[in-house]
Amino acid sequence: MIEYALFFAAICYGVALLMDLWRIAVGPNAADRILALDTMVINVIALLVLYGVWRGTAIYFEAAMLVAMVGFVSTVAYCRFLLRGDIIE
C-alpha cells in the first residue's frame, strides 16, 4: 500500500514540476519566474524525502535540508538583484 501512495505522490510532484516549468517559460514577468523557481525547490525537497522513504534510508534528509537552504538563499539573491541591482551592497 505504501508503494502505491509513494508512486501517487511522486507522480503528483512530477506533474507539479512540469507546471512550474511552464510558468517559468511563459512568465510574464520576473517575479513569476522567481516564484516558480522557488516552488520547484519546494517540490524537489518533497521528491527527495519521498525517494528516501522509498529506498528506506535516512541519508536523503540531509540532501533535502541542503536543497532547502540553497533554494532560500538563491531566491533571496534573485530578488535582491531585481530590487537593488546588486546582491551584497
Binding site: 501512495a5 501517487f8 505522490a9 511522486a10 503528483c12 507539479a16 517575479a31 519546494i42 517540490n43
Partner: peptide, 26 residues
C-alpha cells in the same frame, strides 16, 4: 497512516503548482 499522509501531501503539492498556472495575477 503513512499512505494517507503521502496522498494528502501529493494532492496539495499538485494543487500548489496548479494554482501557479491557473491564477490570473502575479
Amino acid at each position: 497512516l503513512i499512505s494517507v499522509f503521502l496522498v494528502i501531501s501529493g494532492i496539495f503539492g499538485f494543487v500548489g503548482s496548479y494554482g501557479l498556472i491557473k491564477l490570473k495575477d502575479s
